[in-house]
């Protein structure tokens, strides 16, 4: 159980050059956990990866031609739970219809959502009035 609350609300330009920045926040968070008994380095990688994949997904689903668009990433570390919300302004997609990768005939794309679902405890994608939100929960 973590002893304190950390809340981050970050808005970045809709550009892949900021993936490193967002991903590194996940690594820092993993190192801030005071009472985490698992593999801290593995958790740091996984949070980096999930934030990177989720943000890249939002950038990919941006409104075509709108280079001024932004991605909002909200992170809340409270008690023994990490909540990540990534907001995009694109057309959205159906999370449940994203197929599992075919491991016998692997493809070059389509593994991002699989990785997020595999490494985290809960993943939902909801359309809101003015945006979509990918919500990811990890119990620590």
């Amino acid at each position: 159980m973590t002893a304190s609350i950390i809340q981050l609300d970050v808005i970045i330009p809709n550009q892949t050059r900021y993936l490193d920045f967002i991903g590194s926040l996940g690594e820092r968070l993993a190192r801030e956990l005071k009472h985490y008994h698992g593999d801290r380095e593995a958790l740091a990688y996984h949070l980096n990866l999930v934030l990177t994949e989720a943000t890249a997904n939002a950038i990919k689903h941006r409104v075509p031609g709108n280079l001024e668009d932004t991605v909002r990433v909200f992170i809340l570390l409270e008690h023994n739970q990490l909540t990540i919300k990534v907001y995009d302004h694109g057309q959205g997609f159906d999370l449940e219809s994203v197929p599992l990768p075919d491991f016998d005939h692997p493809k070059e794309s389509g593994m991002g959502i699989f990785l997020i679902k595999t490494l985290m405890d809960s993943v939902t994608y909801k359309k809101q009035e003015h945006c979509n939100v990918l919500e990811i929960i990890k119990r620590l």
């Binding site: 990866l49 990177t52 994949e53 593994m111």
Partner: peptide, 16 residues
């Protein structure tokens, strides 16, 4: 020290 799904995909593309 870090690779994501797009990096794996790039290597897989080269492999194929």
């Amino acid at each position: 020290r870090f690779i994501d799904s797009s990096g794996l995909g790039a290597l897989l593309s080269g492999y194929k």
